[in-house]
Computed example of a mutant assay.
Amino acid sequence: MNVLKHFEVVFLAAFGIACAANVAYDAAAQKPEPVRTAAASAQKMPVVVITAKRMTHAEKVASLVEEQKHTPAVASL
């Protein structure tokens, strides 16, 4: 009967022991070294540089109007 009164303490103690065992097991396990390839480190990432002027407000409006002329109207539901 005494165990039933203190079941929460027994559960927490068992949980603590399980967590400690897990940490000890992970610390003892050997971790593999990461695979390093020569090809990945030798190549450089290609970089694209775009140089262009920004559109003015009038050019943006004209572009949107032109786009709306060529886009078919979508029927609303």
Rank of each mutant, 00 (worst) to 15 (best):
N2S: 11
V3Y: 09
L4D: 09
L4M: 11
L4P: 07
K5R: 11
K5H: 07
K5Q: 08
H6R: 15
F7Q: 09
E8A: 07
E8D: 04
E8Y: 07
E8H: 08
V9H: 05
V9K: 12
V9Y: 02
V9T: 14
V10M: 01
V10G: 03
V10Q: 02
F11M: 11
F11C: 07
L12N: 08
L12Y: 13
A13K: 07
A13C: 05
A14N: 13
A14V: 04
G16V: 00
G16W: 00
G16L: 01
G16E: 01
G16Y: 01
I17G: 00
I17E: 00
A18H: 04
C19N: 08
C19A: 07
A20T: 05
A20S: 03
A20H: 08
A21H: 10
N22Q: 09
N22F: 03
V23I: 14
V23R: 04
V23F: 02
A24G: 06
A24N: 01
A24S: 05
Y25Q: 04
Y25D: 03
D26I: 10
D26H: 11
D26C: 07
A27E: 01
A27Y: 04
A27S: 05
A28I: 09
A28L: 06
A29K: 15
Q30M: 04
P32D: 09
P32K: 12
E33T: 14
E33N: 15
V35D: 03
V35H: 06
R36S: 11
T37G: 08
T37P: 06
T37H: 13
A38C: 02
A39R: 15
A40F: 10
A40E: 08
S41H: 13
S41I: 13
S41L: 13
S41M: 10
A42T: 13
Q43E: 14
Q43G: 06
Q43T: 15
K44M: 04
K44V: 08
K44E: 06
K44S: 09
M45F: 10
M45R: 12
P46S: 01
P46L: 02
P46C: 02
V47R: 11
V47K: 07
V48E: 03
V48I: 12
V48C: 04
V48Q: 06
V48A: 07
I50W: 07
I50P: 05
T51A: 02
T51C: 02
T51S: 06
T51Y: 01
A52T: 15
A52I: 09
A52F: 00
A52Y: 01
K53S: 07
R54T: 12
R54E: 11
M55P: 11
M55K: 15
M55G: 08
M55E: 11
M55W: 12
M55D: 10
T56G: 02
T56R: 12
H57L: 07
A58G: 13
A58W: 15
E59V: 04
E59R: 15
V61M: 02
V61R: 08
S63G: 09
S63A: 13
L64N: 10
L64H: 08
V65N: 09
V65K: 12
V65I: 13
E66Y: 10
E66H: 09
Q68T: 15
Q68V: 14
K69Q: 05
K69R: 11
H70M: 04
H70S: 05
P72T: 03
P72S: 01
A73D: 05
A73C: 03
A73P: 03
A73F: 12
A73I: 12
V74Y: 03
V74A: 01
A75D: 10
A75N: 10
A75G: 02
L77H: 14
